[in-house]
Design a protein around this nucleic acid. Sequence first.
DNA 1: ATAACTGTCATACTGTCCTATGACAGTCAC
DNA 2: GTGACTGTCATAGGACAGTATGACAGTTAT
Lengths: 148, 148
Amino acid sequence: MTVTGQVMLRLQVNFKSGLPVYLQLVEQIKAAAASGTLQHGEPLPSIRPLAEELRVNRNTIAKAYAELESLGVIETIPGKGCFLKQNTSPFRAKVRAEMLAEPIDALIVQAHHLQISEANLLRLVKERLVEFEAQRQKADAKSKEKAA
Amino acid sequence: MTVTGQVMLRLQVNFKSGLPVYLQLVEQIKAAAASGTLQHGEPLPSIRPLAEELRVNRNTIAKAYAELESLGVIETIPGKGCFLKQNTSPFRAKVRAEMLAEPIDALIVQAHHLQISEANLLRLVKERLVEFEAQRQKADAKSKEKAA
DNA sequence: ATAACTGTCATACTGTCCTATGACAGTCAC
DNA sequence: GTGACTGTCATAGGACAGTATGACAGTTAT
């Protein structure tokens, strides 16, 4: 049984990608949280076994978890483990919206250079949104089934 | 007269930001191209004067321009200068759309962690799109006026 | 209390990224 | 051809990011 087996979490690292391993893990776990694959309160794989399974140093995992904690995504209790936090942002609604302006602009610029029209960009965003929604539905069903 | 004065291009670097200077310039020039502030065929500021104005090394500018050339955004003719290229992507439409999937997903994940609803995310994207469109209109008007 | 588990921290090594310097090569006006 | 401009390349130094090792501290079951 893999250490990631208990939760429907599939973590993998790509050493050839320029992106640092610990950031790859941060991205994957943030995505899992957003898609409902990881539900709040659920424990993350513990550092040492996960490090062994991924063939990575323990501190690389620790760094990923530390980063996630500073982002407010997980909560770590020394001696017990790391757990997914309830998703809450400490900022006011307006500030949160402003924080998205930069990444949105970056996306628009990239779409322009790929010659994707504005209409098509919007369509693609909508497509990905329904995809995420579907994943969340599936994940919620799974977690209910487990609770029963 | 500043070297960036001929075109309506305002370049600036922030040394405190973690982002390397040359990448800041890449981003700004890509954005200028996308918003029409820089029109295809227009020359970019030449390396040495721009370096002096921004108080950075010549090679930092050169690196930014080299990066832009490898991205296909500009064309550089040794001895003459660097010019904004016609915006064309070498890929087929389907591939180009697929290239946007990753950044779109990243945006959706970030929106989730900022507790921005899907509807609000879409609204924000639309808002930024009309903003870009307005800038392009303004830039086109300016370039027509100059041609006359 | 012991053992086996959890995460944490200080430290050091290593490679790479960023920037800077100086010499070089093409273009153009005179 | 000379001089002033364009971009290019090789090289080197300094800083930092990424990773690795080992010792440490809290939690839990036996």
